[in-house]
Amino acid sequence: MRRFVALILIVLLLTPLAGEVGAAGNAQPLFKIDMTIKVAPVVIENTSTWLGTFKMYVVLTDPHYRAYFDYLASNNTTAANEEFKSFVKELVYDNMKDNLEKRYEAANVSSTIYLPSGGPVKVLDNWSAVVTFAVTNFLVSDGKTLRCPATGNLDFVYKGHVFDYTWNRLTLILPQDYEIANLAPVPDDLSDNVAVWNNGDFIPLIELYTRVYSYVRFLNATRKEISLQYDPHEGYVQFNATFTGANATPVIISQLLASFKATMNIMSIDTRQENGSLVVIGIARPEVAYKETSSEKIWKAMVKLPGAFDSISVVGGSYVVAPDHTIIITVTEKKSTYRFYAYGIAAVLVVVAVLIVVKRRGTKEETETEPEEPGEEEPSPESEEQESPEEDEGGGE
C-alpha cells in the first residue's frame, strides 16, 4: 500500500512538468547553471593541443523534481544521490557532449573529451553537483588566429523536446599571455583575459592571435629606434631600443626579449615603459676586429640586430649597415704624441747623464796621474851654520 501511495505521489509531482516540456525552444526548466571554461595550451601524448576545461556548477531548481529526490532520500540517501548523479549526467553532461560533438563534426575538426577518474558528475549538498570534463582542440590555428570550433547556440533535449541550453553565468578564462582578437557577443565584463557573460545559451565566438602574429602586428605598428655605444676597453656594446605606437602585451614583450637573445650575445637585458613606449635596455658582447697603425688604434665591433629599425644611431663612433640587419661599429683612438716626446726627452736626459758621468770619471783619472814639476832646493840648516864663522871672522878684521 505504501509503495502504491508513493507511486501516485511521484506521478502527481511530475505531471505538472508535462505542460512545460511541450513548449519547445524555451529555456531549460530544470537547473541553475554557472559554467566556467578555462582555456590553455597543453601537451598530451607528445602532441600540442589547446584544452578547454569545463566546470559546471548546477543546482536543481524544479520544485517537482526536488520533491521527488527528497522523497527518495528519505528512504535511502545513497540511492537518491546515485539517481541524482545519473539524472545530472544525462541532462547536463550528455547534452553538452552532444552539442560539442556536433560542432566539431560540422567544423571537420577532431576532438577528444577527457573525464575525471570518478566520472563527469560529483554530487554536492542540496541537490547540486559539479560537472567536469575537458575537450582537446578547443582552439585551432590558421596561422594568424586561434579559433574555437565549438562556437554556437546550445540545445538541451529533455523527454524528446528541445530547449535552449541556458546558463545563468559563463566565465571564460583565457591565457593572459595571448592577445584577444575577438569575443562575440561582447562580454558583460572583460579584465585580464577573463570574460563574463550573464544569462545566455551559447558558447561564444573565441579568437586569439597566435604569438607569432601578435609579435608581427606589434612590429608593423611601431616606430623602432635603437642607439648603440661600443666601449673598446670594456669590450661590450650598450644599446637602447625604443618601440613607439602600439601596446606591448606580456606575450609581445616575451617575444621581443627572445628575439634579442636569439640574435645578440646578450650579457644583460631589461624593459621599461616610458612615455607610452616600450624601451629595451641591454648590454651585448660583439665580435671585434682590431688593428693598429703608427698613429691610431682601430676597433670594428659587429652586432646583429633582431630586425630592421627605422632609426639607428651610434655614440662615440661611426657605423655601416651590413646584410642581415648587422651593424659594424668603428671606434678610432689616436695614439698620444706626448708619450713620444716624453720618451725622447727621457732618452736625451739619459744620454746627457751618461756623458757627464763619463767626462767626470775621465777628468778625475787625469788629475790623479799628472807628475809634479821640479823646484829650488831649500838650504839645509847645516850649510847655514858653517857659513856663520866666516862671517864672524870678517867682522873681526
Rank of each mutant, 00 (worst) to 15 (best):
A284E: 03
D310E: 08
E296G: 07
K297G: 12
I298W: 01
E296I: 09
K300H: 09
A322V: 04
V303T: 05
A289D: 15
E287W: 08
A308P: 01
A322Q: 09
I298F: 02
I298V: 13
G316L: 10
P286T: 02
K291D: 14
S313C: 02
E296T: 14
G282H: 05
A308Q: 11
S318L: 05
P306E: 00
F309P: 01
W299V: 09
F309S: 03
F309R: 06
T293N: 08
K300A: 08
F309M: 00
V303W: 00
E292R: 11
K304G: 07
S311V: 13
V315N: 13
E287T: 15
R285A: 12
A284Y: 01
V303G: 00
P306Y: 07
S295C: 03
S311M: 13
P323M: 07
T293S: 15
M302V: 10
A322I: 03
D324E: 06
W299T: 01
A289E: 15
F309D: 05
S313F: 02
R285T: 11
A308K: 10
V320R: 06
G282W: 02
G317T: 08
A284K: 00
R285E: 11
P323D: 07
K291Q: 13
Y290C: 01
M302A: 11
H325V: 05
L305R: 05
S294F: 14
I283K: 10
P323Q: 04
D310V: 06
V315S: 14
L305P: 06
V315L: 13
A322M: 11
S295I: 13
T293H: 11
K291Y: 14
V288H: 02
